[in-house]
Amino acid sequence: MTEVLPLARTASDHVPCVVTIKTSIPKSKIFRFENFWVELEGFMECVQQSWQKSFHKAHITARIADKFKSLRGALKKWQLNFSKLKILIAKCNEVILCLDGLEELRPLLPEFNFRKVVKLHVEQLLHLQFVYWKKRCTIRYIKVAGENTKFFHAMATERHRRNSIASLKDTDGTIVSNHSQMEGIIWNFFKNRMGV
């Protein structure tokens, strides 16, 4: 369903419009294996139970294909049992904030260990989130290549800063930072080493 809504005229005699295009194209549910699942409790048991099921196919490749399909279905069901990382991190941060506010009023005696446990849990969740986004970043870069050029240019600039040479020490011990002088030092060094 497409809608066109006119907006108020501010300065000119033209009427600005907002066009909203909505489609009802069904989106296929793609199964995506997440790297951080391996570190979660119950993952190996789920894989083991699914993989040990017997399939009665004549050819070994058909049996392996069926095992992978079964494993995909089992992992889809298994991953529904745990919450989303972003929501879990937000809720843990709320608990820590409440405990910090309570500590301003009175010392935390019974709650001290609980806050410590929640903080450790947040660290684990942040590690899992890091693994998740590390994988997402590489997939996004492969799929859309130069779409996110600002980010990748910034990364390349940072890498260039780390790899750039600010100054060189000459054979007599003087420190040189001029580009042409550094170029001469490098040229002479490799010329003497490589020969004519």
Rank of each mutant, 00 (worst) to 15 (best):
T2W: 13
T10I: 14
H14I: 04
H14P: 08
C17W: 07
K29C: 00
N35T: 11
E39V: 07
E41R: 14
M44W: 10
C46H: 09
Q49A: 15
Q49Y: 10
W51I: 05
Q52K: 04
F55R: 03
F55D: 01
H56M: 00
K57G: 11
H59P: 08
T61F: 13
T61I: 13
R63F: 12
A65I: 02
D66Q: 06
K67I: 11
F68M: 15
S70T: 11
G73L: 13
L75T: 03
K76M: 12
N81Y: 06
F82G: 04
S83N: 10
L88H: 10
I89C: 02
E94K: 07
E94F: 05
E94Q: 09
L99V: 00
D100V: 05
D100M: 05
E104V: 00
R106F: 01
P107W: 03
P107E: 04
P110G: 08
F112A: 15
N113C: 06
K116F: 15
V117S: 11
V118F: 13
H121N: 09
L125Q: 02
L128T: 06
F130Y: 12
K134V: 06
C137K: 15
C137N: 14
T138K: 12
I139D: 13
A145Y: 04
T149P: 06
K150Y: 11
F151L: 11
H153N: 09
T157V: 06
E158N: 10
E158G: 07
R162F: 05
S164H: 13
A166G: 11
K169C: 13
D172E: 12
T174A: 10
V176T: 02
S177Y: 03
H179T: 15
N192R: 09
R193K: 14
V196E: 14
